[in-house]
Design a protein around this nucleic acid. Sequence first.
DNA 1: TCTGGGGTCCTAGGACCC
DNA 2: TCTGGGGTCCTAGGACCC
Length: 417
Amino acid sequence: MFALVDCNNFYVSCERVFNPKLEKRPTIVLSNNDGCVIARSNEAKDLGILMGEPAFKNKNIYKKHKVAILSSNFALYGDMSQRVMSVLSQNSSALEIYSIDEAFIDLSGIPVKKLLSEIKYLKTTVEQWTGIPVSIGVGITKTLAKVANHVAKRSTGVKILIDSRDVKKSLKNLKVENIWGVGSRLKKILNSFGIKNALELRSQNELWVQKYMTIVGRRLQLELKGIICYQLETNPTNKKQICTSRSFGQLVEEFSKLEEAASMYATRCAEKLRYQHSCASVIKVFIQTNSFRKQLLQYRNISFIKLPIPTNSTLKITKAALLGLKTIFKSGYSYHKLGVIIENIVPDTNIQTHLFDNQNYKVQKDLMAAMDKINSINGQDTVKVASQGFRQPWKMRQVRVSPCYTTRWNDFITVKI
DNA sequence: TCTGGGGTCCTAGGACCC
DNA sequence: TCTGGGGTCCTAGGACCC
């Protein structure tokens, strides 16, 4: 049994905690550079303001209804999120923080009779301690808990969806596009076969689902049937990719400004990397013009840099990012967005396999011999090396540690920094 | 020497999430 | 004039190996 706790209109609710005058007033929060709407109060939703809508389009509506328009303050939201999650973790046995405003809770062990009072208590506690209103939905699987939450949001704020007739009814009332995991593409496919609600999807033939919705759809269907495919993930796993990117407030042409942004974002990436005690060896930089402005000349490109040895040094990552930027920069374009991405992330204690890179044949051979020795002493798969015959020029296929790593990077720039 | 089946690994790109 | 940012997972298809 899972509960999904979801903060209502999270960013707006955060703002309201510190500015009670915003209560009852239609309120929206805008993205970076006040570009588009990323949060709406219920009153704003009632005005027909959509999520992700560009803010400049509806200025008249905002003015007419005296909508409070706020720039985003992610430091505040992050802090409020932590407070909510801490209350939840104090009041539950197992917690998975799913996003900044959502968490799954394990409820197994609580008798069904007590469920309602439990989650009502949880809801009240969070609201009293943090000032953030939440909705809680309970279901047998995570997907059903999501469905329950959907129902809760439209009623009293709590919903237990266990009774099979109740489940059936709720699924019938849920449009396919509102199912967790169904986006615009799947909606189109489903609708074209006349499947409009979640109940119809649940009762579809399994082979059909597999064919048109792949394994993802099968899991979705099973979860709707009450068969658990997604467990609670209580240990936050390390990021496999870390990205820092922004749109510029206005178009940028000078290389120096791009450089400035690239080194700032590279620094942020390195910080995030160190925070999770990892190292990375691939640094990507992308730049792009504004694709919405079709009259302008369009250009986008991404550079790949692979470092011989993983690092979490800000300096090294920044240097690589700047080098990458140089390789893709073209003058004569007006740039709109820049991002730095780091990949090939490994724990910072686990870099020995990368010694194989950029070594000559003899050194590699010696290293392999050393690895073999370590393996034979430990008697386990500390380090595995593919048992290929040696060839010239040396091409190592695979060095298997966890995570697995190979040296097939011919098309990439490899730099020593 | 010729050829095929079975397998792994990798990447780009798409789809989806909040 | 002005259109978010940060992620994950899956698949197809190529490269490569035995």
